[in-house]
Structures are given as C-alpha cells and as structure tokens.
Design a protein around this nucleic acid. Sequence first.
DNA 1: TAAATTATATACTAGGTAGTATGTTTTTTT
DNA 2: AAAAAAACATACTACCTAGTATATAATTTA
Lengths: 201, 201
Amino acid sequence: MDQRLKSELTRQLILNESFKLFYENGFKTTSVDKIMKATNLTKGAFYHHFENKKALGLAVIGLKLQKRVYEAMVAPLYGSGDALEILKTIFSVRLKSFTVYEKQHGCPANNFINEIGDQEFAYQNALKRIIEEWKSALVYVLDRGKTEGSVRKDICSKSVAVYLISAFEGVRGLRKLYDNDLILDEYISGLSLYIKQISAS
Amino acid sequence: MDQRLKSELTRQLILNESFKLFYENGFKTTSVDKIMKATNLTKGAFYHHFENKKALGLAVIGLKLQKRVYEAMVAPLYGSGDALEILKTIFSVRLKSFTVYEKQHGCPANNFINEIGDQEFAYQNALKRIIEEWKSALVYVLDRGKTEGSVRKDICSKSVAVYLISAFEGVRGLRKLYDNDLILDEYISGLSLYIKQISAS
DNA sequence: TAAATTATATACTAGGTAGTATGTTTTTTT
DNA sequence: AAAAAAACATACTACCTAGTATATAATTTA
C-alpha cells in the first residue's frame, strides 16, 4: 500500500481510539498501552507517530475535538434561518437527540476542560481556541438576529454567548449523575425562558 | 492525648489533604502515597482509617465537599432578604470574590462530577445528593419570591434552578482556560439578563 | 501494672506507567 | 536489485500504583 496513505490511516486510527478512550475514561488515566491495545498495534507504532502522550493529547484536542465541536455546534450557527430558531435547535433539540452513551459521558470538550484545563498551558490554549471559535459564531448569529430584528438590540452578544455555552456545558456534566432526562428537560425549559428574554418584541 | 480525639484529628487531616490534592490535581491521579506524604503520616495510618481509596473519595465528597457547597451555596438561600438579591449575590458577587487559586482550579464539585460522575454508581449518588440539596434550596427561594411578589409566578422554579446551576458550573470550568476574569464578567452580564426575566414587574 | 486494643510505621507484592533501545519488516529511492 | 528510509514490533527500564502483611508504639481497659 502507498506509504503516505498507510501512515495517515494509522495516525487517524490512533487519534480515533484515543478520543474514544479519553471520552470514556478520561485523559490522564488512559494509558498509551490501552490505546495501542485498542488499535491492535504496538508501542513502536505509537512513538513513531507521536512524540509523547502530551503531543497526542494536543492532536486529539486540536484535530478530533475541534472538528466535532465545529460540525455540531459552530457550523450550524453560520447557516441560514431565524437566529433564535438556530439557537434553540443547537442548545436544546440537539441535546435530547444524544445517545445514552453521549448523555452518560457528557461533553468531550467539557471533560477535557475540567480535567486538564488547569494543568498545562498548551492544553489550555488548544481548548481555548475551540471555545473562542464557538463564542464567535454565537456572537455572529446574535448580531445577525439584531440586524434582522428578531434579537433585542440592547443585549450584549458576547455575554449571551458565554451564558449559553456555560449552561450547556454545565448541564452536560450534571446529566452524568442521573439515569434519566429530567434534568435535561428542566434545563431546556430554563433555556427557553432565556431565549425569550433576548428576543425582540 | 485522648485516643478518640487523636484518631478523629488524623482522619480529618487525611480528608483535608485529600480534598486539596483532589482539587488541584484530580481524583484519579492523586495517589494514596501523595496524600500521606502531605499529611506526614504513612500508608499504615491511611488503611487504618479508610478501607480503600474509593471509601476515601466517598468520604471527601459526602463530608468535605457537601459541607463546602452547603455553606457557600445552599445556606445563604435559606436566609432572609429579597429572593432575587440573594440569587445575584450567590451566582455573581461570590464568583468575583474567589481567589486566583479558586478561579484557576474551578468548582470542586464540578470537577468531581466531570471526572468521576460517569464512572461509579456510588460516586454518582454522593454527588447527586449535593446537587439535589442545592436545587431544593433554589426552588425554595424562588417559590418564596413568588409568594412575596418579586418573582414571576408563571416560571418553573425547578427549571430556573437547574439553569442557574448549569451556567454557574459551566463557567467555572471555562474560566480555567483563561488568565483573566473577562469570561466571568460576561457570564455575570448574561446572568443578570436571566434574573431580569424571572423577576415580576 | 499486665493485657488488650488502637494508632501508626515499615517492608513488601503484583501490576500499571511513560518512555527508550533495538530489533524486523515493508516501502521507497537510487 | 541494492541501499536507504519509513513503519511497526519486541523487550526492556525506572518509577508509580493500590493494597497487604507484619511490626512497633501509644493508649485504654481489666
């Protein structure tokens, strides 16, 4: 097989298995051994593709995680349609459509943030980039809403963006403690009140 | 020295040092060895006072953590004064008064929730108790506000409680990524909008 | 005061950890 | 086809991990 392609496939395999194991068991307690056992490859392959575990962590955050957040939470914000409807879809409809697995293990980004967001500057920065990208998209859609007359002009877009992200990440943590969706339903009801508050009219 | 007292002091010392190390470095990566080094005692003492690390974790959550949350976030809700003023104080004023250390490492409860809230039923339950106690107090103060006419009667207290807790815990995680309070200020501004929405008049 | 109990210390086990050194195999280049 | 380089495997090191076994010191009880 073409060496370039084979190498890239292996790299992606390691990144994917890492993401999965980090998500299920945490970053710090997932060992390189466990990851490579999941890939059916060995340590030699790992250290050929990554300098060390920290480099792997940064690659998972900067590639896999960032891409997932972008596709699920950021890109839809740049789509067409009523601004407030888009917000409702992203912050509540999406939430209910998660699988049990996703509800149980919370938000991958939030897990990383809470586990290693206070440990290493490099991790901090990589994670910050994801949040800032998300925040910018929210500010964009809120400003658009203001222009189109659906969003109140006297609210601060940045503040609303931060409050929306905070509540979303917060409840994805809380949901881990329960075995049903009650807390999600309450969150959604609480959120709809907030969206009403920022809507014009 | 009285043996009862001495034993209790040792137990509390272990619990306190554990809490601190769990807070700074996480639960799973804080070893019994590190804890006992911090206490200047040895492993023999540890396993005399605790059956294993899991029992220690549950004790830290059920005693230290629950007490801290109760004193800082729950008890004030049962105090006198305007309901909405109490909410503002707890969810925004308090936030700004945290030390750099507390801002950097986030919310101890949220850290536990995100690290081990999806791992063991026993941890889940111990953490759930803390959240439910907090939620109940919030529902109490919101209902009181309704009675006194300061809070809108058509809002669901439980939903507002969950949304308030979610946003608070969420932003305490996000703050880890930054080295200044901008995100906290934005959160507070976003929160004040929410409190306006639930206020009568 | 002697015996029993409690509190703590020391030394150990079995297994997990990140990372390295050095192989062998596969692919590419000359 | 030979040489070089890349991809991966195997075997290792030094250290950390939870937990145990057993000793000693301090305190309480008989």
